[in-house]
Amino acid sequence: MIDSAASWRTWPLVALYFTSFGGFLALTAWLPTFWGTFYRAPHWVALGLTAGFSLFSSLIRVPAGGWSDRFGGEKVAFAAYGLLLAGAVMMTLSQSFGMSAAGEVLVAAGMGIANAAVFKLVPHYVPDAVGGTAGWVGGLGALGGFVVPPILGHVAQTMGAIGYARGYAVYVVLAIASLLLTGLLYATPARRQPVEPPQGSTRTTARL
């Protein structure tokens, strides 16, 4: 844990997971209120849209792991946070039920794909402290589920009914920041430190 905390690359990874997984947790708590209050949707519709969001975002994480292996975690992360950004912009500006629902689908896809991509990046950027880094990323990243909902609530309380939509601007900011952090990591790849052999030891190479 100490070694991973000493690597600056751990903290952008934490921030990326804060956006994707923490943001996902926040929306599972907020979406019933959003649909029920902003669009006056029946209770079962609000719950159904929230359940659909949660299920889709969770399921798409499975193939996203394979995409990360095939195309690289950085490319998949760029695509994922791009989807999140597009969906967040749609939900922020929309006053149409259909457009908000479409934005929700994009946000769900982006978050689920990003969750898989981030853990593909962990061993690449902090190769000498993978377990500790995964602990920081998983633990602190989940704090987004507690930090974001009060912000959404404050915007709604301050701006009135339209604030339930405008509050999604926080996800626009988080998505842009995540794209920048992904670019920063990509521009500064980590290199595993070579392990020196014990003094006096010899190396042998077996050849078939």
Rank of each mutant, 00 (worst) to 15 (best):
G65S: 08
Y171K: 00
E196C: 07
G66H: 13
V130S: 06
A5P: 05
T19L: 04
P149C: 09
L184C: 12
G72T: 04
G82Q: 06
D128S: 15
V122G: 05
W67G: 01
G153W: 05
F53M: 02
M1C: 09
G131K: 09
G144S: 14
N115G: 14
Y125F: 15
F38W: 04
M99E: 14
T10N: 01
L93A: 12
A109M: 13
G160P: 02
Q199N: 10
A165G: 10
P12L: 00
A79R: 03
S20Y: 04
K120A: 15
A116V: 02
A79D: 10
A142S: 15
A108Y: 08
Q199I: 12
A206T: 07
G73N: 11
F34K: 09
M159L: 14
G145E: 12
Q193W: 00
L184M: 13
G183C: 09
Y186W: 10
Y168K: 02
A5T: 06
R192Y: 11
I113Y: 01
P63D: 02
R203F: 15
T204M: 14
G138R: 04
A29H: 04
A86F: 07
G98P: 10
V172H: 12
G66C: 07
R70S: 13
Y164P: 03
G82V: 02
P197V: 07
V173A: 15
L59E: 10
K120Y: 11
P32M: 06
Y17Q: 09
L152T: 00
T92S: 14
L181D: 06
V105A: 14
T188W: 11
A29N: 08
V173W: 08
S54L: 13
W30I: 05
S94T: 15
P12M: 01
L25A: 03
P189S: 02
T182H: 04
G65R: 02
F18S: 03
P42L: 05
A116E: 01
F119S: 02
A15F: 06
L121F: 05
T158P: 04
F71W: 13
G163F: 03
S178G: 01
L93I: 09
A86T: 12
A46H: 08
I176K: 13
L27N: 06
E104C: 14
A101S: 11
A169D: 10
W35F: 15
I113W: 01
V170Y: 05
G98T: 13
A109S: 14
A101K: 07
F38G: 03
S100M: 08
P123S: 12
A5N: 10
N115P: 07
L143W: 00
A190M: 06
L13S: 07
Q157F: 14
A101H: 06
W44V: 08
G36A: 06
M159K: 12
A165R: 08
L83A: 01
K120N: 15
F24A: 02
T10S: 05
Q157T: 14
T188Y: 11
D3C: 10
G183R: 03
Y39R: 12
A190W: 03
G48L: 11
T188I: 08
A117N: 04
R192K: 15
Y125E: 06
G73D: 07
V14M: 08
W30Q: 08
G23T: 10
V130T: 13
V137A: 05
F97N: 03
G48S: 14
F71L: 15
T92I: 11
Y17V: 09
